[in-house]
Amino acid sequence: MPHQVSVFAENRPGKIERITGVLLKKNIDIRAITISDSGDYGIVKLLVDRPQEAAGLLKEEGIAATLRDIVAIRVKDKPGGLYEAASILTRSGVNVEDAYGFIVERKKDAVFVFQVEDVRKTERVLSDAGFSILTDGELYLI
């Protein structure tokens, strides 16, 4: 099961610099980054090649960071690519809590990353429907 690194950050200049600076020191590669913001503060979510190590490094620096379980699936990079997956999730009553996506190869492959309450159930319904679920290793080596 893949993980993302979630980092608590006040909504002030210099925060992304500080986080990415810590990761740079150990040559950690960022695959995707997204920030959810609530005004005063936000959560920076990072998909990196070595999540455990990244979370550990950030914590050592006194930064509030944690690992979250996520679901990552491969979808086709074409109109309707995400719709198919979303339909499966709707039919199974899975609520997507937080999500982002990125393109791996234009017009071909994209990855949809999301948080859900029950990761195992979600992975099962999607793989039953023929979606390819990315494992830790696969995701980070894209």
């Binding site: 608590f8 959810s36 509030a64 960071a65 944690t66 690992l67 979250r68």
Partner: peptide
């Protein structure tokens, strides 16, 4: 200050 060990990475939880 948020206690780092208690941070769960969830925005709604913080709210």
């Amino acid at each position: 200050e948020l206690y780092s060990k208690m941070f769960q990475g969830d925005m709604r939880e913080l709210e």
